[in-house]
């Protein structure tokens, strides 16, 4: 089945460039992102569904949707 073989796509934050503004947190429909100690955004890979809303919102454009290995 195609569904089981599809590689999951998840949000990845380029942490060193993240400004910790929290814009991504606000738009994530899965509540998958949190700001770690005011330093950077951290995505809970278990919750993320790869919708890309955070990518669009991030003012610094430091989030990418990437395929993650199984």
């Amino acid at each position: 089945m195609a569904k089981t073989t599809r590689i999951p796509r998840k949000a990845q934050v380029m942490e060193s460039l993240c400004v910790a503004c929290g814009c991504c947190v606000k738009v994530c429909p899965m509540k998958a992102i949190s700001i770690y100690k005011g330093i950077k955004a951290v995505v809970d890979q278990k919750l993320c569904v790869g919708c890309g809303k955070c990518v669009k919102e991030c003012p610094a454009s430091v989030i990418e949707i990437q395929e993650v290995g199984p």
Binding site: V19, A20, C21, C23, G38, I39, E57, C58, P59, A60, S61
Partner: peptide, 17 residues
């Protein structure tokens, strides 16, 4: 650029980070 691009270089944001 993006709506909240000010937040990228906002001095308050940079300082608090």
């Amino acid at each position: 650029f993006k709506p909240r691009s000010w937040c990228v270089y906002c001095p308050m944001g940079t300082m608090t980070q």
